[in-house]
């Protein structure tokens, strides 16, 4: 396990380094941060002076080395727009995104597993067909549209739920602003979580159904049936466990993606999370925040994948054995 973790840390460092190089390479294409810092009428000389002050006139490799040197000491640079350390800005927004993703994942897990299994076991049942057709619809509507429709139905027309933002938040552990502990915060979570899960949920239902159907065709299931085992035991214990492997793999990747790029959902709901500031950084060409963000996201991806690998090992012992070699 120790060797495994060391290897993963080395991997994370490498990933972050590579991402920072890419980040610096695309930096200039995003735009000129100075433009967003000054009014349009400000003279060219003033802008040049500011560029010089920000170190933007140095060659990119020099800027990159400076960035890495500072990053080693935990300083990922200053966000030009927020006028604060970039890492602080990102970490401050992380709870919003993590809570949103958590809620969505919960919705996805709790609905996709029973529905997926049911649809595989009873493919001709009316409900199976209904769910399958609905899932097609779900996959094909863009998140943006789903979100707007939900807002118009539940906020504008019915006045049941709030239309934007996180509502009241409570600070726990001194740094984590949570919306999970207040009534208002929970109400604000409903629509964004549903929107965010609207694409993934159908995907997972279909994935579980397909995998389950495949497993149900295998010999050991037939053997178990012949042996006279209870159907529930066969489906849930023998079949479902083997269905899980690909689901976990896909789920892990998707979880990382959701944390990093919930841009659309967060924008529509003015949900101040990481996806939101990512877009803000791009639009305002806040390049230092952008690079810091990409590096942090690289870290999150390695982290999530590591956790997935550990879980994978628990579910499928053969992986664990090869991992130890």
């Amino acid at each position: 396990m120790f060797a495994f973790i060391v290897r993963r840390i080395a991997q994370a460092v490498l990933v972050m380094l590579v991402i920072s190089v890419i980040g610096f390479a695309i930096k200039s294409a995003v735009g000129d941060p100075v433009r967003d810092l000054v009014g349009i009428a400000v003279s060219v000389e003033e802008r040049m002076a500011l560029r010089e002050e920000l170190g933007l006139n140095d060659p990119l490799p020099v800027q990159w080395v400076r960035f890495v040197t500072n990053a080693v000491q935990g300083d990922l640079g200053h966000s030009y727009f927020f006028k604060k350390p970039a890492l602080e800005v990102i970490l401050k927004k992380a709870p919003a995104t993590i809570e949103l993703v958590l809620c969505s994942s919960l919705i996805i897990v709790l609905f996709s597993i029973p529905i997926g299994i049911f649809a595989a076991v009873k493919p001709n049942n009316f409900f199976s067909r209904l769910f399958m057709s609905l899932s097609i619809v779900g996959v094909s509507i863009p998140v943006f549209l789903t979100a707007i429709i939900l807002i118009y139905i539940f906020a504008v027309e019915l006045h049941w739920l709030p239309s934007y933002g996180r509502g009241d938040t409570v600070r726990i552990w001194g740094f984590w602003d949570t919306g999970l502990l207040t009534w208002d915060g929970l109400k604000h979570l409903v629509l964004p979580s549903i929107s965010l899960s609207s694409i993934m949920l159908p995907l997972f239902i279909r994935l579980i159904r397909a995998e389950m159907k495949e497993v149900l065709e295998t010999d050991y299931i037939k053997f178990a049936k012949a042996k006279g085992l209870k159907l529930s035991r066969i489906y849930l214990l023998h079949a479902f466990k083997n269905t899980l492997l690909p689901v976990i793999t896909v789920g892990g990747v998707q979880l990382g993606t959701m944390i990093a790029f919930t841009v659309l959902t967060e924008t529509v709901f003015q949900w101040q999370g990481m996806g939101f500031i990512f877009l803000e950084a791009v639009e305002r060409s806040d390049t230092s925040l952008l690079v810091a963000y990409l590096v942090v996201v690289g870290f999150i991806f390695v982290l999530v994948n590591t956790v997935v690998d550990v879980i994978y090992g628990l579910v499928n012992p053969t992986v664990r054995i090869t991992g130890r070699k």
Binding site: C103, L106, I107, L110, F111, F154, W160, L161, W183, L186, K187, L189, V190, S193, I194
Partner: peptide
């Protein structure tokens, strides 16, 4: 889901 999503 009620606990998490349909709290509203």
């Amino acid at each position: 889901a009620l606990g998490c999503a349909d709290e509203g």
